[in-house]
């Protein structure tokens, strides 16, 4: 297999347009999955040589622009991001380990694939995501880590990331560079719920690369709360990205997204609707949290995530309301 380098933005004859080519950025997911024989790219295109704009962090102006090749650790440590977007800084800081955050890029982070054990071990034949139509071993298997929202009868694999929750909550736009130039789409339209085609995870087309994320406005009153089995270096059992605009005790705007519980980055719009225009109290937080999980479906080992997820959302709301800004 050839490893090719990409030093200019994707063009019509970009090596990325080869059949089954995979871009390599930090390599923290791709290399693992290749060793496990889960991903078998025909070609690997090293995108690290792309110019500096691809890794730029630009908090100036009305929008925050984050280059797709920016390292997780650099963004998490950025002063202005910590001040104006605590939900972004914390979602990154609470993810993975220091070593991985130093390698991994934002673009790769949002594209990381599920940690479903049955997906990652090719000796299990039944995985609709890996081998369409083969069934789902997780459905009635060991599924403690699996999703309760956005599932289908084909797949219950959890979207594992943290940062994506912040992006979807804050109405981020994704800038995608492809053979015909740049296109923009709402981050909420990047990932696809499994439905009947769990093998299709995003709306990116062949040859396209995420070049940047653009986040409108500033969200100093925002938190990322993550519940997990150990204190660090562990995926969420349940997490909540919460950003609020509160004036005199009234919630003017609320942005809520859930992690660790859904098949894709998950915006809790029902929760937001219940909160908007209301005076905050603990009862409201509870009702709003309940709404987020109205359609949740638990299975043998993961039903606890529904009750847990509600408590995490309610607590994150309390933290966001009471935080000093």
């Amino acid at each position: 297999m050839a490893v090719q380098a990409l030093s200019a933005a994707a063009t019509a004859n970009s090596p990325l347009t080869q059949a089954n080519a995979q871009p390599l950025a930090g390599g923290t997911t791709l290399i693992d999955l290749m060793k496990l024989d889960v991903m078998r790219p025909a070609a690997i295109v090293d995108i690290n040589p792309l110019d500096q704009r691809w890794s730029a962090i630009d908090p100036g102006g009305e929008n925050l622009r984050l280059g797709a090749l920016a390292k997780m650790s650099d963004v998490a440590a950025h002063d202005e991001i910590q001040r104006h977007y605590p939900v972004i800084a914390n979602s990154l800081k609470l993810a993975a380990s220091a070593q991985l955050r130093n390698m991994a890029t934002l673009g790769g982070n949002v594209m990381q694939r599920t940690r479903c054990s049955y997906f990652r071990d090719v000796s299990y034949r039944n995985c609709n995501k890996r081998s369409p139509g083969s069934g789902c071993a997780a459905m009635d298997g060991v599924n403690r880590m699996h999703a309760v929202l956005g599932t289908s009868d084909q797949c219950i694999a959890t979207y594992p990331g943290d940062f994506a929750q912040a992006l979807i909550a804050l109405d981020a736009t994704v800038e995608v560079t492809g053979r015909s130039g740049i296109r923009r789409l709402p981050f909420a339209e990047l990932h696809k719920a499994p439905g009947s085609t769990p093998e299709i995870e995003t709306t990116l087309q062949s040859g396209e690369l995420i070049s940047a994320f653009v986040i409108p406005g500033r969200w100093p009153r925002s938190v990322y709360l993550k519940a997990r089995d150990r204190q660090s270096y562990e995926f969420a059992l349940s997490s909540a990205a919460v950003a609020l605009d509160v004036q005199d005790g009234t919630i003017r705007d609320a942005r809520i997204a859930l992690g660790g519980v859904a098949t894709v980055p998950w915006r809790a719009r029902e929760t937001e609707a219940l909160l908007k225009g209301q005076k905050f109290d603990d009862g409201l937080a509870q009702r709003a949290a309940d709404a987020a999980f109205a359609d949740a479906k638990g299975r043998q080992h993961n039903s606890f995530k529904i009750a847990l997820g509600k408590r995490v959302v309610a607590r994150a709301l309390q933290q966001a309301v009471t935080m000093e800004i």
Partner: peptide, 13 residues
């Protein structure tokens, strides 16, 4: 059957 899913403590624990 791997170190990501079979948890052992990290320093923070």
């Amino acid at each position: 059957d791997n170190f990501a899913d079979y948890l052992v403590p990290v320093n923070a624990d």
